Computed example of a mutant assay.
Amino acid sequence: MKVYAISDLHVGVSSNRAALDVLPAYPDDWLIVGGDVGETEEQLDYALSILTQRFAKVLWVPGNHDLWTVPANSETALRGEPKYRALVDICRSYGVATPEDPYPLWNEQVVLAPLFVLYDYSFRPADIPEEQAVAWAAETKVVCSDEYVLHPDPYPSRQAWCQARLAYTEKRLAAIPATHSIVLINHFPLRQEFARVYRIPRFSIWCGTTQTEDWHTRYPVSVVVSGHVHVRATDYRDGVRFEEVSLGYQRDWKQEKGIQAYLREILPGPGKPAQQPATQWYR
């Protein structure tokens, strides 16, 4: 039995949706879905109706797109925490593990920990105050759509929602016995260095929080799984394997290879190398 991971399926894109339709079955294996399945409850429901038939178990974490309220001017559409809870309910209807559920145990010794940790604009230069971060990004004509369609209700800001999620998650992680190994799963990178937004570098402020920089050493972590930036890679830091597992938009992957070519094996995985290798990129 293996555990695979993929994120950023973006099934609202017709080619991605078509590729998901023909994804082969892996009846003995588990799948981690690292967020950005789509923008609506219907898209998540559609994707899970397929994935839960192709894999023995599925785990899910939300991405920023999943949390969007579209259309933005709808008076009846769910926003913020209520939207998130509705997504969790959809997952539970399929038996999919979420950040609100007990962490699944793999082979009796590895804890798979789906997380929902947002961002707080702290992935920015030290001389840029937080209150100026969005304006700083906008100077290069970069403003994330989250500013218009990812609402933090009932929290006063996305930063406040992020703080609440950090406190909730840290409490849960601290309760995991040190005898276990943990796979941390979050849509956003947990370290700023992995916010690899080379074409639009100031987009980094929407990519995570510096408060998770040391989580891979604070807890007994063996692997960290993330997506969001659409730059697939494997890295090692402090003996911990970091996997960016995005699929992305049409420009980000080769449709002729199929989604199955982009499933990353997380467990058992390649094992720890004797020396930390250079970054391994995936095209």
Rank of each mutant, 00 (worst) to 15 (best):
S181P: 07
N186G: 08
V240E: 09
P189F: 02
V149P: 00
A138F: 08
E147G: 11
A175D: 13
C207H: 05
A178I: 01
A233K: 08
E131V: 03
P129D: 05
T217Y: 00
P129I: 03
H230W: 03
A138V: 13
S157V: 11
T212H: 14
C144R: 01
C144I: 05
S145V: 07
T234S: 15
C144Q: 07
P152G: 13
V245K: 04
A133D: 08
R241W: 15
H216M: 05
T140I: 04
H180W: 05
V223T: 14
P129Y: 08
R191D: 08
S145L: 02
T209K: 02
I185H: 00
R202T: 15
P189K: 11
E170D: 10
E170F: 05
R232T: 08
Y236Q: 03
Y198F: 14
V223M: 01
P152R: 07
T140M: 09
P220R: 11
A133G: 06
A160I: 04
Y148A: 06
E170P: 06
V183C: 03
Q192G: 03
H228G: 05
P189E: 12
I185L: 12
E170Y: 00
R165M: 15
H187P: 06
L166P: 09
T140L: 14
P154S: 08
T140E: 02
T212L: 08
V223E: 04
R232P: 00
D235F: 11
V224N: 00
H228F: 09
A137S: 15
P152A: 14
Q163H: 08
F203K: 12
V197T: 15
Y148H: 11
Q132N: 14
H230P: 12
A160S: 14
V197F: 06
V143L: 12
T179M: 11
S145D: 05
D214G: 03
R241L: 10
K171V: 12
A195T: 09
P156E: 07
H216W: 09
A195W: 05
R218S: 12
V197Y: 06
A133M: 07
V143S: 10
T209W: 06
A233L: 00
E193C: 11
R232S: 06
W206R: 03
E147C: 06
